[in-house]
Structures are given as structure tokens and as C-alpha cells.
Write a protein that binds this DNA or RNA. Structure first.
Lengths: 395, 395
DNA sequence: TTGTAAGCGTTATCAA
DNA sequence: TTGATAACGCTTACAA
């Protein structure tokens, strides 16, 4: 029997996936003169097998080079009957690969991957379809259908994720497995994110302490996107204003920026994503008009670092100086604005992206390996990093 | 029979991996009043089954919602006997996750992922151990042992990859599956990379055309690393010099930089990776000493963009100007040096990283799906992008 | 404490 | 053209 199998294998040496010498539990059993079932139990340290037998079997298995992971298909097939699933040690991360050019996403992805890999999990990057099509026709990667994925981390706002969620839940290969939302609040799953309210509070307080009295908050009014985070930031700013005895209604101003301002200033895809403003048109830019119409404003709270730097460039082109004429605070602290000597000048709200990623990875491992699947919403603290883009308010 | 199975399933509704209603070939056969074997053949469009029967079976299968990918373990187990392997549609990309902060690696990874995902392949990011330990004790992620990975793309130089290669080849779950080297030449596998020789030639020619006569090439003499690429760059520079009727021995100078200069200037891990030089010490930096000792040098060929920008900052600190005093050419064209208005100033050799990634992805798909596994070495052309960091040589 | 038997869902061989 | 049968290697229930 055993000989027959070996011959088959040798004869298929040229096959594309030549299996080396695949040791089975039966091979071990034959060597030990016992039954294969006993080997199966012993390998899983079943207490019903005597310690001596177990030890011997383990020794022989090691000596023969038995590798249980090679036989996962057989194990999966057998377990299937009892409704059990085998842990694949595979976690999917849903993230648009083009986002990896942004330090923001790279930091999250990197920290997630580091934790998962050191814990023995493989990470598959899979960009789930974000189109709000009917749940029925969302094309999921086959790896999800096959049941090869134990859990999912995603960085998509809830509004756009909902159809994907519905589809995942009714996909046999995924079913009720855990998912965790990263950087976005979620009513469906646990989430790990930054405390945006605190971050905005810190930024506003920093400016108020410097004597600024009228703050301009950038906004992005995209209907489709979850607006909760922006609301939280406004709450933070308003609190800071109230603590400074200022009426939020009068002292907090808003300006809606184009999506392009949030995009990275540079990527190596060939074409620069955002063309710098032509100098002649700088003065006519909507933002410059708005600032001229509201001369009481002396400080800008950007949505992220890119939009802060874009604003800075625009001010430079219009002949204004930062921080002398306007102070600017970035958000995320992922993109720098260097001076001629390599010092980052951008004051920004630092998010603990690496800690968030690590926390989310630890959490999904816990949930995947059967830990309490309680739904949690984690908000990690932010920190304002003062640099050269903020200074005392102009007179 | 079928009823019994369904009941079992319903009773296990609370199990962690509740399988929905899993349709099997037998279910289809019962509905059609034929044998399961026929269904198996029909589903694979076997010509032995009559077209009518096949059509009916396919129709019923679709109606019942039969999903073949759910039963991959069974298929794998069955195929295993005949030495055949089932395609997983999974490609591993071996890349240190911390490298994702570099636009260089992010561009490669992104383009690879884009092609693979649109072709229906899942991408697992797996950082293979680069330590030159004994091949026997390289800890491979279990996903490799299980045979879940169809092929591998890696961005590690050959010297460091060799032990991993040996181990992969003798791992039953991976065996002789295809691998492709990205950005590094390889004697073991196919490779896709940039034409470094051409890039260096273009950079040198650009400088010579501007009147520069003595060029300084940065070097990185790390013993462990494959030095072929640096040699090729020197070849390119020497050719440009010879075409300009200049003796390479006399007109090409070398300066060995620290590894830190190649690292990214900024990452969002919390601590900046490279502290800017203290102004006082700038003049005493080894590079400044070297330049003072060789006043005939007027231009610098950096190893990548970071090292170019580092040199630029250092020159600024020492009171020198780019490009008035020194011209600098970067390499890779992945990191920008912005002026106050958001224009990139760094002249650099642009590598077609996205094209390289896409090409490699297409190649691994071809090899994985049984295409001719000929070993190929692809070099894609580079392009010099002139910007503000290069200008006429000083008198 | 160990052995026996059945079955997971598929594929390949061979008979009808 | 279709059907019957035997694996693939494992796990679990049950018998010894």
C-alpha cells in the first residue's frame, strides 16, 4: 500500500506540483504498529491516548517529517461534516491598493501586517468592490467563497461598506466571521480609530492659546461619505471655543474644499496628482476670496496634511506668509512640509496610526480564535505636534 | 440522506462557521435523476457528456446555487491522488512591510496587486525571513506549507534570497512553483527590473551636456548585498564619459554614503528616521570634506532620491546652492523635493515601477497557469526627468 | 486505552 | 454516453 503510493508519486515527478514525500498518519501508524486513528488522536494530544504512546508517536512523526499543514484539505473535508471550520490563519485587509501611496494607509497597513505576520497569520490584500450596487452582484474574490479567510479588516466608511457587508454575511464561505472597521465608526462591527474629537480640540486650543480668535475649518461635503467624523471634529473645536469664552457660532467658519486637496501631493505613478496652482490665478482662488471676505480669520484647520500644505502653497503664491499672516494646522501628521534643511514645518494633529493598526490586528486575532466577540468601539488618543506653521495671530 | 445533512446543518446554526445551504453535486444529481459522476463531468464541460444533459445539469446547478469554490478542499483531496494540484489563485508577494512607506516599494506593490486582483488572484503579503540562516530552519508561513500559494514575487537581492529559495524548493507545499524576482537580477528565477545601466547613462549624459566634467557617484558598499546593479550603473556612466571623450578613470569619482541616506526622509512611525544635520557640523561632514578635496567635481549622481535630497540639505546647511554650486541627480523618481509653491525640483531618473510591477504580475500569472516557464530577464527602459536641481556647471 | 467503521465531496478509472 | 466504484487523509462516534 505504502509502496504503491510512493511509486505513483515518483512517476509523477514531472507534474507541476510534485509532492515531495508526503507522510501521512497511516505511514506513522505502520511504523509504530498501531492504528491510524490512534495517531490522529495522539497528534492532537488527546488525553485518551496514554502518555507513552503519545510520546512515541510524536517522536516518530517528527523523525519522519510529518507536516500536518500539508493535509489541511483532508482535515477541512473531515471537519466539515461536523460543522466545524479549520482556522486558516488568513486575514483579509480590504484597502484600495492605490491608497498605499498615502502614508496614512501605508502606516495602517504596515502595522496590521506586522502584527498578523508575527502571529503566524497571512495577510491578503483585497479591495472589495465599493460600488453601491445590489448586494447580490458584488463580485467577491474567490478566496472568500472558499472559506479561506478567517476575518476581515477594512478601511471604508460605513455608508459605502454596507452593501459589501450584507453580501459577505450571506456568503457561505464567510458567514458570521469577524470583521473590524479601521478609522471609521461602525454600527455593524467593532471599530478601532483615532479620537477625532480630541484631535480637533487640541488643534483649536493650540490656536486659541496663540491668540487666534476666528478659525477656519475645511470641510468636505461629499454626500455619500459618512459625515460623523467631521461632526466630531466640529464638536471638539466648539468645546475649545467655549472654554475660551467664545461663541462657536460666531468664531468658527467653514470652507468647503475640493476632494483633490485631500489627495497626496505626490505619487510616483507618472503624472503628479495635483498640479500646483498657476501663480496668476492664486489670488482668484475661492479660498483666497473667502479669506479676503473674512479678514478676522487668522488660522486654518485643515482636513488632513495634504490640504494644509495645498493651502500653504496657495498662500505663498498669493504673496502671504505662514505663520505670519495665517497659521495652519494639519491633521494626521503623515505628510511633511520641509524647509530647505529638511525640517518638517507643519504643525499637525498626530494620530497613533501604528497603534491603531496593531490594536485592530490583535483584536481580529482574538475574535478569530474564538475570543469574546463583543462589539467594541475603540478611540485612541491624538497628540498635537507644534511646528513652524503656527504662530501668534497677526494684529 | 440529503435531509439528514440539512438537519445537521440547521442544528449547527450557532457554530462559528455556519455553512449556509451547501449544494453538492449529489444534490444536483438527485434533482436531475442521474448519477453524481455525470454531474461532476458535466460541470467541467467534459465532452463525453451529451450537450443536452450538460445544459440541463448546468441550468439546475445554477438554479440551485451550486458554488464549486466552496468545495475546494474536497477537490484538492481528490486531485491530490493523481499528483495534480488545484490552482488557488493566490500569489505571495515577499516584501518587508516596513518598506511600504517608501514610494518605491509602494508603487511596485500597488501595481502588482492591481493586476493580480483584477485577474482574480488574491495577494498575500508575506515577509520571508531574510536572515542567512541555514535553509533547514527558515520559518515559512504555514500558507506555503499547505500548498495554498501558487507562485511568488519577491524584491530581495539574490544573495539574501538564496537560502529562502533553497528552503522553498524543498517544501512539499511549494515545490517547483514559479517565482519571479522584482528589481533585482536573478540567476535562479525570471526577473523583471529597470535598466539601471541606461538610467545611469542618461543621468551622466544629462550632466555632461550641461558642461560638467567631474562626476561624483554615491556608492553603498554593503558586502552582503548583490553589487551587480551598482556595477551596471557605473558601466552606464563610463559609457557616457567615453562618448564625451573623457577618461572614466579620471572623471568618475566615488563616495560611499551611509545606509541612512538611502532611507526615507520621513515616515509616520513617530520618530523621524533621519535627523537633519546640525548646522554647525555640516561643514565637517565627510561628504563636504570630500568635495573640498576635489574641487573639480561639480555634479553628484545619487543612489536614489532620498540620498540626493539628503545631500542637497547638507549643501544648503554648508552655505552652498543647488544647482549653482552643485548639480544633483536623483534616482527612481519616487521622492520629490518641493519648492515653496509645490513644484518638484529634483532632477531624477524615472523608473517605470508601475510597468515593472504589472509586467511581473502578468508573467507570474502566465507561469502559474501553465504557460511556458522559460527563464526571462526583462529590463524596462528608464527616462531622465530634468528639473531644477541640475544646471550648467560652475566655472 | 485502543481499534473499527463511516463519511466529508470530489475526481479518475473502468465497466456497462 | 452514462453509471459504479475506489480512492484522497482526516476526524468523530462507537465498539472492544
Amino acid at each position: 500500500m505504502s509502496h504503491k503510493r510512493k511509486q505513483e508519486l515518483d512517476s509523477s515527478a514531472a507534474a507541476p506540483s510534485r509532492r515531495h514525500a508526503m507522510i501521512t498518519q497511516r505511514d506513522i501508524a505502520e511504523r509504530c504498529g498501531i492504528h491510524q486513528t490512534t495517531v490522529s488522536l495522539a497528534l492532537r494530544r488527546d488525553p485518551r491516548i496514554s502518555p507513552e504512546t503519545t510520546d512515541e508517536i510524536l517522536a516518530v512523526a517528527a523523525e519522519m517529517g510529518y507536516d500536518p499543514s500539508v493535509h489541511t484539505p483532508a482535515r477541512r473535508l473531515a471537519m466539515h461534516r461536523h460543522g466545524q471550520a479549520v482556522l486558516n490563519h488568513v486575514i483579509a485587509v480590504s484597502m484600495d491598493p492605490t491608497y498605499l501611496h498615502m502614508h496614512y494607509y501605508a502606516a495602517i497597513f504596515q502595522s496590521v501586517v506586522e502584527v498578523l505576520m508575527t502571529k503566524g497569520y497571512a495577510v491578503v490584500l483585497s479591495h472589495l468592490p465599493k460600488t453601491a450596487a445590489t448586494p447580490a452582484e458584488v463580485a467577491l474574490p474567490t478566496i472568500f467563497h472558499r472559506g479561506d479567510v478567517d476575518g476581515l479588516l477594512y478601511t471604508i466608511d460605513e455608508n459605502r461598506f454596507r452593501p459589501v457587508y450584507a453580501h459577505l454575511r450571506e456568503t457561505p464561505g464567510f458567514g458570521q466571521r469577524p470583521m473590524i472597521s479601521l478609522m471609521w465608526p461602525s454600527d455593524l462591527n467593532s471599530s478601532v480609530m483615532a479620537d477625532d474629537r480630541q484631535g480637533a480640540y487640541q488643534a483649536a486650543k493650540h490656536l486659541l492659546d496663540l491668540g487666534h480668535r476666528h478659525l477656519l475649518q475645511f470641510t468636505l461635503r461629499q454626500v455619500k461619505q459618512d459625515q460623523r467624523i467631521q461632526q466630531w471634529r466640529w464638536d471638539g473645536i466648539r468645546q475649545a471655543l467655549r472654554e475660551a469664552r467664545l461663541d462657536p457660532e460666531a468664531h468658527l467658519h467653514f470652507f468647503d474644499v475640493a476632494q483633490e486637496w485631500l489627495d497626496p501631493l505626490w505619487n510616483p505613478l507618472g503624472t503628479p496628482p495635483v498640479a500646483p496652482h498657476p501663480p496668476r490665478e492664486a489670488a482668484n482662488h475661492p479660498l483666497m476670496r473667502f479669506l479676503r471676505a473674512h479678514p478676522e480669520i487668522t488660522a486654518i484647520l485643515a482636513l488632513n496634511d495634504s490640504s494644509a500644505i495645498q493651502a500653504w502653497y496657495l498662500l505663498n503664491l498669493a504673496g502671504l506668509r505662514v505663520p505670519d499672516d495665517y497659521s495652519i494646522v494639519g491633521f494626521d501628521d503623515v505628510d511633511p512640509m520641509f524647509d530647505d534643511y529638511g525640517h518638517n514645518q507643519l504643525t499637525s494633529v498626530h494620530l497613533p496610526l501604528m497603534r491603531i493598526g496593531r490594536k485592530a490586528a490583535a483584536l481580529i486575532i482574538e475574535q478569530v480564535s474564538g475570543g469574546a466577540a463583543e462589539r467594541v468601539q475603540l478611540c485612541l488618543p491624538t497628540e498635537l505636534i507644534p511646528r513652524a506653521s503656527t504662530g501668534p495671530a497677526r494684529a
